[in-house]
Nucleic acid binder design. Sequence first.
DNA 1: CGCCGTATTGAGCGCTCTCAACGAGGGTGG
DNA 2: CCACCCTCGTTGAGAGCGCTCAATACGGCG
Lengths: 238, 238
Amino acid sequence: MNALTKNKITDNLINFHFYSGMRMDSIPENERLELESQAKSIKVSRKSVLYTEGEAPKGIYVLLSGKIKVSQLNVDGSVQIFFIYSTGDLFGHRPLLCNGKHPVTAVALEDCEFLFVEKDHFMRVLESSPRLSNLFLQSVSHEFTVLVNRINIFAQKSIKERLAYFLLILNHKYKLPGQVADAAEIKVNRSDLASYTGTSLENLVRTLKDFKNKNFIRTDGKSIYINDFDSLYSLTGV
Amino acid sequence: MNALTKNKITDNLINFHFYSGMRMDSIPENERLELESQAKSIKVSRKSVLYTEGEAPKGIYVLLSGKIKVSQLNVDGSVQIFFIYSTGDLFGHRPLLCNGKHPVTAVALEDCEFLFVEKDHFMRVLESSPRLSNLFLQSVSHEFTVLVNRINIFAQKSIKERLAYFLLILNHKYKLPGQVADAAEIKVNRSDLASYTGTSLENLVRTLKDFKNKNFIRTDGKSIYINDFDSLYSLTGV
DNA sequence: CGCCGTATTGAGCGCTCTCAACGAGGGTGG
DNA sequence: CCACCCTCGTTGAGAGCGCTCAATACGGCG
């Protein structure tokens, strides 16, 4: 893949489909220090539940290490995963901003460490800083576009197209800090990957196998690595 | 249907799935007057295009009469409709709030009349009013939940479930101001309804027929009326 | 070694799509 | 007024995708 193509993939996906929302390092120093001054550092182990859908939000979270999955459980037992957060991502703020309940459940995919800022402190800092408030407004407005684009993906694309799409997104999420290689080690189990892609476990496995046969990806145990970004990207049709 | 059930439907759908976003009448009077002072009143005929995906946003819109559909066109020619705006809805603001392009295309479904506030004026009013800015932050954060719920619908539900869901949403959108009757005249053509539900035209027609046979809905020419809110609601599984 | 959770594969069914034809209704020109 | 056309809606048939159920393989751990 040449540099031009690569940039196009990166631009399009990151800007309009991927975009992790708010990150701690995009917050101005003053406000960040103010938030951090009252933040608790918390460690949880794999499978821990940070919050559950329907709960009142207690504060905001900044992930320092590990991965968090954010999902909904349907009445028929099916699970839809919406996001996977990685280091630096700030989340859990949106229900606070609109006085709502958590619409989703957040669970640790690995052992995690995060900062937790309590609701009252967060809201105080937010109210005292129009700059921060505008930053959130910008961020959430951008995420609106990201979600609209994702609705289109789910409504109009086949499993194959969707899986290609989500593998590219996960590749970003699983890049290690400072990693130069394009391909990351994607460590999501088949069941979660199926819930993320919106398909059954068996169908997910079959589609992965298809991608492997075409040499788009390779696997090592349960881990997935992308070989051919270009082909996956053109498959997505975005 | 008893009153309790009806309220549950209304509450759940309106709050978490429907929610039309910002409305002019939820803006504090001062700011509203300031916005309106520079607003142009514009009339367009059916099928007129207000803006196209990829375009730079020029301002915000407040619908006074008529209906607007908001959609994306895919490379394979398929169309996904995301929203249908009706009287009072304020839209087109989100790309302004995050310095982005329009992610979607807005087209008049009927002859429409709307207010248009130019970008510069809107941004000036917004910057001068933390209260307005916070209102938008609240609104867009709430819409985040709405869109997340909708992703779940598209990723996990069948056409039948999705159509039941969107018919209930459209029923709200097509209620006339002050209408007491529950059932509105839903005047969306089959093709648009298919694009909204995320299915093919033929399949949409077949599912409508199924609903008609079960007496969930009735049709009069091209218009659709809901008979049985309860059954449709329980079909959606939300 | 046996157990348990996860991954893979197979078979068959049903939903949804596409292609194709037909019908209904409104508008236009002869 | 009628004939024609154009758009939109409806129906049928058949193919293929994606689902469920069921069985098998694999790997870590007690």
